[in-house]
Simulated assay, not measured.
Amino acid sequence: MFGSAPAWLWAAFIAIVVLALFVDFAVLKKQGSHAVSVPEAIRWSIVWVALSLAFNVFLWWAYVQESGSAVAHTKALEFLTGYLVEKSLAVDNIFVFLMIFTYFSVPAAFQKRVLMIGIILAMVLRAIMILIGGWLIAEFHWILYVFGAFLVITGIKMWTANDEEGDLESNPALKMLRRFMTVSPHYDGEKFFTLHNGAKVATPLLLVCTLVGITDVIFAVDSIPAIFAITSDPFIVLTSNIFAILGLRAMFFLLAAMAAKFHLLNYGLAVVLVFIGTKMLVVYWGIKIPALVSLAVVVGVLAVTMVWSVKTAPKIGGSKTVQD
């Protein structure tokens, strides 16, 4: 259930994530509420990607010590491929987050804290889902084929739904939350609760934080089966997922400022999902696609889609700050 990693490597991973979150919270507290500029988003994106790649090198070294270079090469390649897949699929989350922030008119100064809280909630819930998924696959191997079929169907639906407008008002999660929460009509700074007509009620900020967490878990239903197609090792699945999520906040502010330039990216993500789902299904006939081929396909499809998106992007203004 806990994969091939020794206990000390699990402990090192947990320590690195806790330290990274501590530093992130300390920086957030020091900076206070503020709108995140594009240069700041770029700097933090570089930091998180560098941390993830450094962990991959550390992971490779750890497996060399424990199991030899052949296993180390395989695990490091699986981590890198899984990280890129999860990072790519996170783009879909970002556009939904952007829709949520726009719908609830979340002030730009509050968006950073909302994402931080939502990401921590998502990390905890994803860890639980991954460990359960690893146990299910170990006990019922046929569930991999169910995951594969699900990803192929999801990819086809993503491709065909690209031209449809998102409708947050009909979102079932939002409808459910409104049944259980009385929400004030106005924000009260960064507070989650406030007094309205003499009663203590939730602020829109609490509703937005909850929606962000729920949305990420819903998207995990797609992304977690996708990475199980790359590796069935729960340690690699969990670490690549968590490191992809750690940089999600910086990635949000970066892509939110350039959303129009990547208007074709969902088509690339749809192709990636269909490819990964197919990879899981063909194992039934004894066909195993190597991790290096998977990595090349994922990088190639996303690179082509992003370049084509930039070439055909509509003209947008050169705003330096992400606005609400």
Rank of each mutant, 00 (worst) to 15 (best):
C209H: 01
C209D: 06
C209N: 07
C209Y: 02
C209G: 00
T210M: 11
T210Y: 06
T210W: 03
T210N: 07
T210G: 03
L211I: 01
L211V: 03
L211Q: 00
L211A: 07
L211G: 00
V212L: 07
V212M: 05
V212T: 10
V212E: 00
V212R: 06
V212D: 03
G213E: 13
G213T: 14
I214F: 13
I214T: 11
I214C: 10
I214L: 15
T215L: 14
D216M: 13
D216L: 13
D216F: 13
V217M: 12
V217C: 07
V217W: 10
V217L: 15
V217P: 04
V217R: 06
I218W: 03
I218G: 01
F219W: 13
F219R: 09
F219Q: 08
F219A: 12
F219T: 12
F219C: 09
A220I: 04
A220W: 06
V221E: 12
V221Q: 12
V221L: 15
D222I: 05
D222E: 10
D222Q: 06
S223C: 12
S223I: 08
S223Q: 06
I224Y: 09
I224W: 09
I224S: 09
P225I: 12
P225D: 04
P225Y: 08
P225W: 13
A226Q: 00
A226G: 01
A226L: 02
I227L: 10
I227H: 02
I227G: 03
I227F: 02
I227K: 04
F228K: 00
F228Y: 14
A229G: 15
A229F: 05
A229C: 12
I230K: 05
I230C: 02
I230L: 05
I230P: 02
I230G: 04
T231P: 07
T231W: 04
T231A: 09
T231F: 01
S232D: 08
S232A: 02
S232F: 02
S232E: 11
D233V: 10
D233W: 01
D233K: 02
P234Y: 11
F235N: 07
I236L: 08
I236R: 02
I236H: 00
I236Q: 00
V237I: 13
V237A: 15
V237D: 03
L238K: 09
L238E: 14
L238M: 14
L238P: 05
L238F: 15
L238W: 14
T239R: 05
T239F: 01
T239Y: 05
T239K: 05
S240Y: 10
S240I: 06
S240G: 13
S240Q: 06
S240V: 10
S240P: 09
N241Y: 06
N241M: 07
I242M: 11
I242Y: 11
F243Q: 14
F243P: 14
F243N: 14
I245A: 12
I245H: 05
I245R: 13
